[in-house]
Design a protein around this nucleic acid. Structure first.
Lengths: 204, 204
DNA sequence: TTTTATTAAACAAACGGTTGGTAGGTAATA
DNA sequence: TATTACCTACCAACCGTTTGTTTAATAAAA
């Protein structure tokens, strides 16, 4: 026999939709990392008790995997897609991408999530790395597409890789040193360099 | 009766000196992160049992702190010091710094340790952040000193910050994507840019 | 009635940390 | 030289807690 004393909210509440479940879990993983987050933390962030998490997910591991996949897909659809928007000239697409990147990194604090989790778990949970790699490959790919307007294939790839590395480096320094200037400077520099490449292309 | 207060010369010979103790612990923290490492792991890496660790350190936390401090001091003394070596011309100092950085990042895999641990623990263990910040401030400071030969004070600082951010970004991308090209390209670019700045300084 | 959502409770394993005790050494003294 | 006092290094065993996970019960919704 089980007694439910002092438990007024035992009734089955309307189902929590997966999206908010993942969103709440993401914010915990963001601030505590993977190993630093307990299933208890995840449940609490969703107003549940530990056991209830297993109604929705097989394991902590699979929950994290789903968070990573959802987040990556969100970026592909909502951010990286801008690169292929034929309505805008290439430079404007890059500018919009840069604006979104700044928002993401400074407010959502989510841009370094992939780096963070990747570094923390690459030796202990290599299954996360595949999604993380896809995220960066997609990001680099979308940038390469923009640089193809002003550079050859190989150079465009290298430039795209360089920009992603610089942005990530800036964000990390920004977070660790508490200096907000890094990212702004990097993104304006990237934009200026693109303008220069456009000029060079017109008058070689 | 004889008192043995500060008389380290009569100590029984330790099987493990603190240096190797810290070194072995570092390699565990490097591959498993902070939260992912247990005191058991640390003991095992030193051929000890868990309890024995507490003969040397107060806690897992203080062990990590000592690892961070020792590593930072090693860099200050053995790497960053190159910046101030008046025997060499500035460009050569930067080149030596770059060579060392490449070794550190690719072989010792230790250059991203500060980033790694910083990101993982900044919300849960803010006491580590102070040492990590010092590491980067020292690194940036040593680079700024080199850039002061070709740039003004403010610009030299910004350039130094940028180079560190770029290197860290490159290393992280290198690790996550398994591409070894990133770092090499970044360091040669940094060196070339320095050469350009030197030319600009001579003929303005 | 069946299904779904949630819970409390229990689980073994692992966690960080503590303790008592032993082995083996040094150094002063007898 | 032998004895004694004292020290370090280390381990085994244990502490209380927390981990991720499972299960049986329960209540609301369909």
């Amino acid at each position: 026999m089980v007694l439910y004393l002092n438990t007024p909210h035992i009734m089955a509440k309307p189902k929590l939709d997966r999206k908010t479940l993942l969103k709440n879990s993401l914010s915990v993983f963001k601030s505590r990392g993977y190993h630093g987050t307990s299933v208890n933390d995840l449940a609490a962030a969703n107003g549940l008790l530990k056991g209830s998490i297993y109604h929705y997910f097989d394991s902590k591991k699979s929950l994290m995997l789903e968070v990573l996949i959802a987040l990556k897909e969100h970026y592909v659809a909502k951010v990286f897609a801008k690169s292929y928007d034929e309505q805008l000239p290439p430079y404007e697409r890059l500018r919009e991408l840069a604006v979104r990147a700044e928002e993401i990194f400074t407010f959502e604090e989510t841009g370094d999530f992939f780096v963070n989790i990747g570094l923390e778990t690459m030796n202990t949970n290599p299954e996360f790395l595949a999604v993380i790699k896809e995220f960066f490959r997609d990001w680099i790919g979308s940038l390469q597409d923009l640089y193809l307007h002003v550079l050859g294939r190989e150079e465009a790839l290298m430039q795209a890789e360089r920009v992603v590395a610089e942005l990530e480096g800036s964000v990390i320094m920004m977070k660790l040193l508490g200096d907000v200037g890094y990212l702004k400077r990097t993104s304006t520099r990237v934009l200026n360099e693109y303008k220069e490449l456009e000029k060079l292309k017109l008058k070689p």
